[in-house]
Write a protein that binds this DNA or RNA. Sequence first.
DNA 1: CTTTCATTCCTAGCAGCGCTAGAAGTAGCC
DNA 2: GGCTACTTCTAGCGCTGCTAGGAATGAAAG
Lengths: 192, 192
Amino acid sequence: MSIKERRERERAERERLIVTAARELAEAEGWDAVTTRRLAAEIEYSQPVLYSHFKGKDAIMVAVAVQGFAEMAGELRAAGTSAPGPREALAAVAEAYAAFADRRPALYDAMFVRAVDLPFATPEAPAALREAFASLHRVIEPLAGDEDPDALTETFWSGLHGLITLMRSGRLRRESHDRRLALLIGHFSPPA
Amino acid sequence: MSIKERRERERAERERLIVTAARELAEAEGWDAVTTRRLAAEIEYSQPVLYSHFKGKDAIMVAVAVQGFAEMAGELRAAGTSAPGPREALAAVAEAYAAFADRRPALYDAMFVRAVDLPFATPEAPAALREAFASLHRVIEPLAGDEDPDALTETFWSGLHGLITLMRSGRLRRESHDRRLALLIGHFSPPA
DNA sequence: CTTTCATTCCTAGCAGCGCTAGAAGTAGCC
DNA sequence: GGCTACTTCTAGCGCTGCTAGGAATGAAAG
């Protein structure tokens, strides 16, 4: 049995290598630069090897996205707990979200813009994704009043996502990002 | 001179034909189906003809997007004027925006998701685009209070855009769209 | 009416893409 | 050492956006 185990270990190792290479290539040059040929060269195997691990290029992007969810969940969680009041907590999590998107644009793309073969608003969604959403939910809920906390969280999230994607595509000026973010936060916080 | 004029007229006609064909193909089957070969076949000319009118495929998408801005501007303007109060006006325009995006997903994509070779937050932006934005601005301004109306409009717009894109990519459940939209509107309206 | 010339347009092809069939090589087992 | 099963590679398919170079067209000149 030990031979088989070793092989499975090596296989898993190579799978990690693929995901890491894809992520690094995407972060360095964008997802358009991540072609199956480039990726194969990077891991020093031939192209078809990729397809013995993943169904296709999209599946590789999904794997990268899942890594991203885990990281984001950690950062949002940290941001949410170290705040004095509910209003500050919301601001901290929102800013952490925006900072993550800004620091890891390619990762954010894989998570929220490109890959779609991923269950989102269901219990089958990846645990890390549900956890990241929960961090948002946790800081929204105390401010929900008589409103539906789930829908409110989704709405606030949409606001963040819109700010980020429109800014990144050059449709919103970067200079006024902080002002817009503050406005969004303000409009989802109690009236002072 | 008349011969040259006739030719220019025919050329302009063919250019319209290209844009229309691209738009119809995109709306029927999505932008992935709009290949230069498909498009050339649709207008019954060879591929290179497209490149004598447009720099590339992206430029064709930009032309389609500009058409979209004009239509959206008209619809938003109409929605904004036929409302009794400022709160209702905001709701009407927001719903018109969401309805447009829902009815013409491919067009919305060209306008706000894909094509990027287009000046946005500057005076050089297409007139129709600035007009569409102005319709949003017009209904936000009365509700701005002491806040910056420009930044507030951009923030509200981001909220709409986020709702739409996240829903369309399957990341938000369609059933609760109305509830989210109402929450967004409510949080940018006076406290009752 | 024919020839010249400029313009328009098409055929053919390049380099790249995601993906896959089938051959070649490698490793474990008897 | 020889057989078997698995792994990995080479080669290629059909597609993409885009372009060079030649063929056809039609207006102007003799």
